[in-house]
């Protein structure tokens, strides 16, 4: 099968483009219409035309499609192949509803607080995937400058899942090229149990120090319940709390004391912030969740408290 454009074919043959259209409409030139004003014709028909008009076929650049030379209704399955050659990204838009549902209205671009940064916006990202510029999109820093805030999705009249889509774009990037310390944090969390790699001994020492402060602040019997089996509530942290502002943890401890809660902090794998969400890495996310589940099982707690 050969792909032709009416205008180009008319130029080659030295006839008017309406002539070619008349041949097609009148059945003299059997052809089937495709997307983008193109037509499919058989090699035999094309060879006949070339003979009639004395054209050297080898001088023409032609686009061939594999397939049966028989012109029939079976052509419909060929059309699907043609759509794929168009380059629609199957990895980024696995479900036809995702990108195809987009009516390019631009509501998302209007709602996005960082539209225009790097000349990008959510609509352009979707179009890039639909039009086969997948690698450009994955290489772009823009999906990482987006905060996945979801304003775009909120206003989308077609319910395109833009946030999940952008997260998938992130997930397809080579892990070595994940910006900043995100990937390091993910690996650290899987290996050491928290995003910043704080060692267990340091963590326990810090908790004990904070416990002393609590006692000085009027909670004389306070002890940080580390790894207490059978506690009702297992508390997780944002590793930033342990690293940068440990005093902020005391707010919670005061509330727990006032409520008479039975709670505990695990000495390991206490990270409650899962950066796999941000790097688009479901496998890593699962591993980190698995560590929390293991803590719950090990200590026999009934409730898991996430840090934010």
């Amino acid at each position: 099968m050969i792909v032709i454009r009416v205008g180009e074919l008319a130029d080659h043959l030295g006839v008017h483009r309406n002539t070619v259209r008349n041949w097609i409409n009148g059945g003299k030139l059997p052809a089937r219409q495709m997307a983008g004003k193109r037509y499919l014709i058989t090699e035999n028909d094309f060879a006949r035309l070339c003979r009639e008009f004395g054209i050297d076929r080898s001088s023409l650049k032609l686009k061939y499609l594999p397939g049966s030379p028989v012109m029939s209704r079976e052509m419909t399955c060929q059309e699907k192949d043609v759509a794929e050659i168009g380059g629609r990204s199957a990895r980024l838009l696995p479900d036809a509803d995702w990108g195809d549902a987009c009516v390019t209205c631009g509501s998302c671009a209007g709602a996005c607080p960082i539209s225009g940064v790097d000349g990008m916006d959510p609509r352009k990202a979707i179009r890039m995937a639909v039009l086969g510029r997948e690698e450009d999109l994955i290489a772009s820093q823009w999906p990482w400058k987006c905060t996945l805030c979801g304003k775009c999705e909120e206003v989308c009249p077609m319910n395109v899942e833009i946030v999940a889509f952008l997260r998938r774009v992130r997930g397809l990037r080579d892990r070595k090229k994940v910006p900043g310390s995100l990937q390091k944090g993910v690996l650290m969390c899987l290996e050491k149990g928290n995003n910043l790699g704080i060692p267990r001994e340091d963590f326990i020492a810090l908790l004990q120090e904070m416990g002393r402060e609590m006692r000085d602040e009027g909670y004389p019997d306070f002890e940080v319940p580390i790894d207490r089996p059978g506690a009702n509530l297992l508390v997780t942290l944002n590793s930033k709390e342990a690293f940068a502002e440990p005093a902020a943890m005391k707010s919670w401890w005061k509330i727990f004391s006032a409520a008479g809660e039975s709670w505990t902090l695990p000495s390991q794998c206490w990270e409650g912030v899962n950066w796999g969400l941000y790097t688009g890495d479901d496998e890593a996310m699962k591993g980190i969740v698995g560590n929390l589940v293991a803590n719950m099982v090990r200590l026999g707690c009934r409730t898991l408290l996430l840090p934010e």
């Binding site: 996945l148 910006p179 900043g180 995100l182 941000y278």
Partner: peptide, 28 residues
């Protein structure tokens, strides 16, 4: 509520070098 503007620091952007974009986003 569901129409709220993002603070500008979501999506893990704290752990990336894109500070300028983070501050710009937060203008709203």
């Amino acid at each position: 509520r569901e129409g709220s503007y993002c603070c500008g620091a979501g999506g893990g952007i704290w752990a990336t070098p894109f500070k300028e974009e983070r501050v710009y986003h937060g203008r709203l």
